[in-house]
Design a protein around this nucleic acid. Structure first.
Length: 470
RNA sequence: CGGGCUGUGGCGCAGUUUGGUUAGCGCGCUGCGUUCGGGACGCAGAGGUCCCCGGUUCAAAUCCGGGCAGCCCGACCA
């Protein structure tokens, strides 16, 4: 069955990436290529990320629900663009209960179709709107070229689906999610700066009228789409018959949105913050934030370590005691470093004789002796600055690799190693095709000052952010 | 579906050009000992239908023919 082969061998990835102890591996599961096994450490990161996003989603008013994994094939074809967009990457089930099915069912690649088939029943009156639903689920897309975390054939995500009475309300909600859920999570939690903007028709979600996106830049200058929020117009409402009586008693089609972010974010975290020594985690996403290492088995050392663990836990940190003294100190510290634990407290007899311990912060790899009495304050200080410092570092990389250009030729050159900003109108009618020939794409469109387009802004006046995507 | 390339212990590879004893190396694994303040070391050991089928030959991982599988670059994509 599972061969368990690690198939990511990309040179661009950090050396340690495929042995990530800390993360996951891709597995060939029979004929299913590029599925993913997430080990406990990586899954712990996902759980924290999930909690952060879930809180924001609920603050935005959406509620969690669950819809079926298997979708009748005919549902997909109800929305023309949608089916065209997803057909090539569908996994289709043709047998069930030992019999050939009358109608094949597909494993959801996304749930617009099933969700909306229920929305059609749930929505009758304008009083039923807005309907704001979120689902945490797994989806399957038969990818031609999987890449660990960034594009796996099966992934975990949240997908939001909403229905509104007016276009303006739907748009406002799509933007609320973009800013208050996604942008906020990327910047404040993951610690990666992202550009926001909308997609060109070519890059737009199949079935959407507008796709808003958060585009991040990884350490190597390549772009990664980290989350998207779509305005669906009335496309799905028409296809699935989602109608409501407005306050005048007139029947109208609902205006909808959908939005999602996935385990790809773990990949973004790895690619965005990792260094040659392994993963670097912002404290908010570290399953263990502080590890207290007993360097040598010794009564006093152990007692001091256990006291520190208790105190640091009382301060609200996620703390773990590493007293596996039968394993060499070097091996243990390297192991925690690979996993990206933000702070290590190393307790040994030599320091203890001086009344100190050694604190090491992972992101800067700086070590310093700290008196026992000052450990709590110092740990709190480090925990407070790791996130902002990681963000600042990533932002500096992004700034350094982003340039304003005037011609397509310049965009091709700059886009190969970062972001090239160019007025869309300057690319010409076949600009996107010519970029595609050079493995480049327009990541997003935004106003010259970086803000989002307003209704009525012509695309030609927008700045196109050109880059190489994963 | 185009363009490159590769199949050899669990993983990564050498050996193939020029056929020749018992197919090597690193990592990992098992045991014992010394170590343990930054991925330890020594000794002993386990583990292989050299992708498959056929051919040439005294002799094939190596040469010839035919299959099969996989990887990388592109098209698709959260």
């Amino acid at each position: 069955m599972t061969k368990g082969a690690i198939v990511s061998r990309d040179e661009d990835f950090p050396r340690w990436y495929q042995e990530v102890v800390s993360g996951a591996e891709m597995a060939d599961n029979g004929p299913v290529r590029g599925t993913m096994v997430i080990r406990p450490w990586g899954y712990g990161i996902w759980e924290l990320l999930q909690a952060e996003m879930d809180r924001r989603i609920k603050e935005a008013g959406a509620e969690n629900a669950y819809f079926p994994l298997l979708i009748p094939e005919s549902y997909l074809s109800l929305e023309a663009e949608h089916v065209e967009g997803f057909s090539p990457e569908l996994a289709v089930v043709t047998y069930g209960g030992g019999k050939k099915l009358e109608e094949p069912v597909v494993v959801r690649p996304t749930s617009e179709t099933v969700v909306n088939s229920f929305f059609a029943k749930w929505v009758q009156s304008h009083r039923d709107l807005p309907l704001l639903i979120n689902q945490w689920a797994n989806v399957v897309r038969w990818e031609l070229r999987p890449r660990l975390f960034l594009r796996t054939s099966e992934f975990l995500w949240q997908e939001g689906h909403t229905a509104h009475a007016t276009e303006a309300e739907a748009r406002a909600y799509a933007l609320l999610i973009l800013r208050d859920v996604y942008l906020s999570t990327m910047v404040d939690v993951v610690g990666l700066p992202v550009l926001t903007g909308h997609k060109t028709p070519r890059e737009r979600f199949a079935g959407a009228t507008r796709t808003w996106t958060c585009e991040g830049m990884m350490g190597d200058g390549k772009a990664l789409q980290m989350a998207t929020s779509h305005e669906l117009g009335q496309n799905f409402a028409r296809a699935f018959g989602i109608t409501f009586s407005n306050s005048e008693g007139v029947l109208e089609h609902a205006w909808q949105t959908s939005w999602g972010a996935s385990t790809r974010l773990i990949g973004a975290l790895v690619m965005g913050h990792g260094d040659d020594f392994g993963l670097r985690l912002p404290p908010a996403l570290a399953p263990t934030q502080v590890v207290v290492l007993v360097i040598k088995e010794d009564g006093e050392v152990r007692a001091a370590a256990e006291t520190l663990v208790a105190e640091l836990r009382a301060d609200g940190h996620r703390v773990r005691l590493d007293d596996r003294t039968e394993t060499s100190f070097g091996r243990r510290s390297v192991g925690w470093e690979l996993k990206g634990v933000p702070v290590r407290v190393e307790v040994g007899p030599r320091d203890l004789a001086e009344g100190t311990v050694t604190l090491v912060s992972r992101h800067s790899r700086q070590k310093e002796p700290v008196p026992l009495a000052g450990v709590r304050r110092e740990v709190a200080a480090i925990m407070g600055r790791v996130g902002p410092e990681l963000l600042a570092e990533a932002a500096a990389t992004q700034r350094y690799r982003t340039v304003d250009v005037a011609t397509l030729e310049e965009a091709v050159e700059a886009g190969a190693s970062g972001f090239a900003r160019i007025r869309l109108g300057a690319l010409g009618v076949d600009g996107e095709d010519r970029l595609a020939d050079k493995a480049l794409s327009i990541r997003c469109l935004q106003r010259p000052d970086g803000s989002l387009a307003e209704p009525g802004d012509p695309d030609a006046d927008m700045i196109a952010v050109v880059g190489r995507s994963y």
